[in-house]
């Protein structure tokens, strides 16, 4: 049913730290590797070694340059499904293929019901859904439901593949419906941002903006002059400079 649940018991999602992300693409490839054998498998690649490689990815990292009056910085920006509380991608679905789970708030696609009309991809402002031309159905991030509840994995690995892969700890997974969960606290402390909040999708994922850098007063002492010194070092310098 593409009507949304009135409430969800939990609201699982990610807190993504734009301060720590170094744009290494580890989350991207790890996501692809896990999910091409996971719930939404396969993540089809078309022409992978050719002129115009194309394919389905659930997580893509953009790079931006932010320029303000006082500074400019490079920011790496991972973009994936935000598992919104009001996901229009679900409500526009005519077939009931898209749904939001009441138990944990994860937004999923039932591939066996999808007719491939692509309307959900139009309804998502974040570009989270990608169509698989080969299979003819829409695909999207599952928040790794086949990892986070997977009792065959050691408990510390029961997190989405992107979170497990991140070498800088920029991705955090948890329950945003619990105000005391680690992600909720982190998001609160760092001023976590809802992307395009004005559209009213109420995304679950939060982006932690880059911290302010210490800059301005430059108190580092100037380097010592090397030329014209006397003493032993001066003698060595003159000797080597011949």
């Amino acid at each position: 049913m593409t009507s949304l649940p009135k409430t969800t018991e939990r609201q699982l999602g990610l807190a993504i730290d734009l301060d720590s992300c170094v744009g290494c693409q580890a989350c991207v490839t790890s996501c692809k590797e896990w999910n091409t054998g996971g719930h939404m498998a396969p993540l089809t690649d078309l022409d992978p070694y050719g002129e115009n490689p194309d394919g389905v990815w659930f997580n893509r990292v953009h790079t931006y340059e932010q320029v303000t009056e006082t500074k400019s910085r490079t920011i790496h920006f991972p973009r994936s499904c935000l598992h919104c509380a009001e996901p229009a991608c679900v409500t526009v679905c005519p077939t009931g293929a898209s749904y939001k789970r009441q138990s944990d708030g994860i937004v999923l696609v039932d591939e066996d019901k999808c007719i491939g009309c692509k309307l959900c991809s139009w309804a998502c402002p974040y570009g989270a859904r990608e169509f698989d031309d080969d299979v003819g159905v829409m695909k999207k991030c599952t928040l790794c439901i086949d990892r986070i509840y997977n009792e065959n994995l050691p408990e510390e690995n029961r997190v989405p593949a992107c979170v497990a892969a991140c070498p800088t700890g920029a991705r955090h997974f948890g329950d945003f419906s619990d105000p005391d969960s680690a992600v909720s606290v982190l998001s609160r402390e760092r001023g976590g941002v809802e992307l395009m909040a004005e559209l009213g999708y109420r995304p679950t994922n939060r982006y932690l903006p880059p911290r302010a850098r210490a800059c301005g007063d430059n108190n580092i002492a100037p380097l010592e002059a090397v030329a014209g010194e006397g003493g032993l070092l001066g003698w060595i310098d003159r000797l080597l400079s011949r």
């Binding site: 990815w57 953009h62 931006y64 320029v67 920011i75 402002p125 992307l195 880059p210």
Partner: peptide, 15 residues
């Protein structure tokens, strides 16, 4: 869209 509130934000590299 990016949550980067201030200044100008320019795309320098696609994924």
């Amino acid at each position: 869209a990016t949550g980067l509130g201030e200044g100008t934000v320019r795309s320098v590299q696609w994924p």
